[in-house]
Amino acid sequence: MSDDTNRHQVGSQELYRQNILDHNRHPRNKRRMEDASVTHRELNFSCGDDIELFVRTEGNRVADASFDGHGCAISQAAVSMLTEHVHGRGIDELENLTDEEMGQLLGVEVGPARRTCAMLGLEALRQALKKLREDI
C-alpha cells in the first residue's frame, strides 16, 4: 500500500529547515520589554498562536525589538527572525515591509495553509507601527 522509502524522501521537510527549527528552539529577542515605545499583541485563533511584539524607537529608527508568546514553529521562528531584521532600521522602511520580503527572511516557500502563521509577526509589526504613527 505504501512505500516507506518514498515516504521518508517526501518527508525531507522543506518548510522545516534547520534555520527555522533553530529559531523555534532558540528564539532571538524573546523577552518582555519594560521601556517599549509601542507594543502589539496579535492572535491567530485558528492555530492558537499568540505573540506580543515590543518595539523601542529612537528618533525614526527601531532601536530594539522583542517578543513574547507561544505558537507553532513557523510563527515563532518568523517573529524571532523579524525582531533581528528590524533592529536599527528606519520606521518608514519597515512600514513598507512586504509579505514577500517576510517570505524571503524565512527563506522557504510558505503554502496557503501556513501563511497566517508565517505572517503573524509581520502583522504585529504593522499594527505596532500604525499605533506609533497615530500617537505622533
Partner: peptide, 9 residues
C-alpha cells in the same frame, strides 16, 4: 511539537 506543525509534517 505544536499541533499545526505536527499536522503539517
Amino acid at each position: 511539537i505544536h499541533p499545526h506543525d505536527m499536522a503539517d509534517l
